[in-house]
Computed example of a mutant assay.
Amino acid sequence: MTERDEAPPTAVEQRLMRGVERAAGVSDHLVHHPAPNGARAFVNAFFGDRLDVSGSPLAHTMGVRRRGRSVPLTEDGLAAAWPAATGDVVVLVHGLVVHETAWQRGRFGQRLEEDLGFTPVTVRYNTGLRISHNGHELDRVLTALVAHWPVPVTRIVLLGHSMGGLVVHSALAQADVEADWVPLVSDTVTLGAPHLGAPLERFANQSARLAGRLRHSRPLAAVLRARSVGIQDLRYGNILDEEWDGLDLDDRSGRRVDVPLHPGVRHLAIVGLLGKRINSRVARLIGDGMVPAASAQGSGPHSPGSRRFAEGDVVVLPGVGHLALVHDPLVYAAIRERLGHRPDPRSPDAEAGQEGPGR
């Protein structure tokens, strides 16, 4: 752990947290309301690591949510929440600055239930914490979910938007080789996930370094450096503890570990573009407005070959921005097309998956 991970909130941050707590409310009977939900998600994104250290009730914890409320990961709790549960489960993992209700507009979960018989399960988590920490937590949640699901689980699909896509792959990369849920995963689908990092975070890091050198801009540097470690993980798309543990937070080169896409699982990357062509300058620079096209599909001059999505596992959607990826009809059509075809258990990839997850 670095000093930044255990540093208590500053006086300014404490005042901000208290103000938001008063405005948003923190009791569980209110968190289903859009206003406190949105406020908490925003504060968690930027200060979630500090909230967690201070034990603030404003901090989100990784868990399953249904209609805004926590679902106990017990047989009774899950059965009450999903009385008509099926064996095919799709787990939806939201991105930075938002919460699980971000999926409501596009109704991806409900539509997969209606069209393909999946039971949708949404999770909420603290996006200000390390992505690798949230990967550990998602592993814990999925372990309990499979153990106590009302019917035997036959198939799991992991669907993640933006940071959520990295959390999904982090959970697979860190899961124990004997984890019951891993062999049940047939597919991962990532929507605009920064597999190779996000230029905006690299720009923020560089701006903080430069601002810190000048006396008059040091307050700005302090504000930029206060951003959470979860946001800072987006600089290079870190998904393992080894990629950040002991590393200077101002480091400009990063420490990348070659984490192969999990064997035995089909991996689909959906890439949004503000421009019309994936090889255009717009696509290279800003992609969907937040994540460049190359990062969203794990390809680039310095990307490890084992991390790149195969050409047939990439869907490029011109005219679809980063936030629209969770509700655009074209995105849902691509997801439905992939999941509507169950993987052949006799295929080489499926057989490789029986060996368990790799690190």
Rank of each mutant, 00 (worst) to 15 (best):
T2Q: 11
A11S: 10
E13H: 03
R15M: 14
L16D: 00
M17R: 05
E21C: 09
A23F: 10
S27H: 08
H32D: 02
H33Y: 09
H33F: 09
A41G: 10
G55P: 05
P57K: 09
V64F: 15
G68P: 14
L73E: 15
A79W: 03
W82H: 09
V89K: 15
L92H: 13
V93W: 13
V98H: 08
A102M: 07
Q104G: 11
G106A: 06
R107E: 13
G109C: 12
G109P: 11
E114A: 14
G117C: 03
T122L: 15
T127G: 09
G128H: 01
S132W: 14
N134T: 15
H136D: 14
A144Y: 00
V146S: 10
W149K: 15
R155K: 14
I156P: 01
G164M: 01
G165N: 11
G165Q: 09
G165P: 09
A171E: 01
L172W: 15
Q174G: 07
V185D: 02
D187R: 04
T188G: 09
V189Y: 08
T190Q: 04
P199L: 08
L210F: 07
A211S: 13
R215K: 14
R215S: 13
L234N: 12
L234W: 13
R235I: 08
D241V: 11
W244I: 04
D245M: 06
G246H: 08
D248H: 00
D248K: 00
D250K: 00
G254Q: 08
D258T: 01
P260E: 01
L268W: 02
A269N: 05
A283V: 15
R284H: 07
L285I: 14
D288I: 04
M290G: 00
S295W: 05
H302K: 06
R307H: 11
R308G: 05
D313H: 04
V316F: 13
V316N: 07
G319Q: 01
A324S: 06
L325D: 03
Y332W: 08
A333N: 09
I335M: 08
R338F: 12
P345E: 01
R346P: 01
R346I: 03
S347C: 03
D349S: 11
E351A: 01
A352T: 04
P357Y: 12
